[in-house]
C-alpha cells in the first residue's frame, strides 16, 4: 500500500487521511510522516537549538497533525506542519528563558557529508544563530534550511513577503558580520 501511496500528492494524501478508514489512514500518515519528518525536525532543531527539544516538538507536531487531519481536511499539510511546529517552538521559546545558552551548548553540527571547510562554516553558523533575534533566525532557517519560497514563509509567519525578505536579508547581514573573518578565509581557499 505504501508503494502506491508514494505516487499521491500531499493534498490527495490528506484527503485520504481525513476520509479513509483507520488502517488506510495510518498508512497514509506513515507516508506523510516520512515525507516531512526531516524538514520539520530540521526546522525545530535550528530554531530551538536542542536535539531533545526538537525531537519532542517534532513528535508533538505530527501527533497534533494526525489528530486534526483525521477530523478535517488539510489542504496543505507541509504548511500546516510548519505552522504547528512554529507555534510549538514559540511556546518553547516563551517557556525557556535560558534558551540561547541552551542553544550554544547543545547544537553540534550534523554535517557528515560536507567538505571540511563547509562543515566548519556550518558549525560556526550554528553557533552564530543565537545571536540573531528570533524572527531573523526563523526566517533564515525557513528560507535556507527548509527551502521555502517567500510566499510560503509569509503564510506561515503571518507576515507579508517583503517583511520576510527583509528578515532573511538582515539575518544574512548579521551572520556575515559575525562570521566575517571565517568566511573571508574560506572564500579565499
Amino acid at each position: 500500500m505504501r508503494a502506491l501511496l508514494h505516487t499521491y500528492s500531499e493534498s490527495e494524501l490528506t484527503k485520504l487521511l481525513c476520509e479513509g478508514e483507520d488502517t488506510l489512514a495510518k498508512s497514509v500518515f506513515a507516508e506523510l510522516y516520512d515525507r516531512f519528518e526531516r524538514r520539520i525536525y530540521a526546522y525545530c532543531l535550528r530554531v530551538t537549538g536542542c536535539r531533545d527539544d526538537a525531537g519532542d516538538i517534532t513528535q508533538e507536531t505530527f501527533i497534533t497533525f494526525y489528530r486534526v487531519a483525521r477530523s478535517k481536511y488539510i489542504d496543505q499539510p507541509s504548511a500546516y506542519l510548519l505552522i504547528t511546529a512554529r507555534n510549538k517552538c514559540l511556546n518553547f521559546k516563551r517557556d525557556h528563558t535560558s534558551y540561547d545558552q541552551l542553544y550554544e551548548e547543545t547544537v553540534p553540527s550534523d554535517s557528515t557529508r560536507n567538505s571540511y571547510e563547509q562543515k566548519d562554516l556550518l558549525d560556526t553558523i550554528s553557533k552564530a544563530l543565537p545571536l540573531l533575534d528570533f524572527e531573523q533566525r526563523e526566517a533564515f532557517v525557513l528560507r535556507y534550511w527548509n527551502g521555502l519560497e517567500y510566499k510560503e514563509m509569509a503564510e506561515i509567519c503571518g507576515e507579508n513577503m517583503n517583511v520576510m525578505r527583509t528578515r532573511v536579508w538582515r539575518a544574512k547581514e548579521k551572520l556575515k558580520e559575525i562570521l566575517a573573518p571565517f568566511i573571508h578565509e574560506i572564500s579565499n581557499l
Partner: peptide, 13 residues
Amino acid sequence: ALHKAATADMATI
C-alpha cells in the same frame, strides 16, 4: 560560501 553552507545543511540533518 555562506549561501552554500546554509543551503547544504538541510540534507545533513
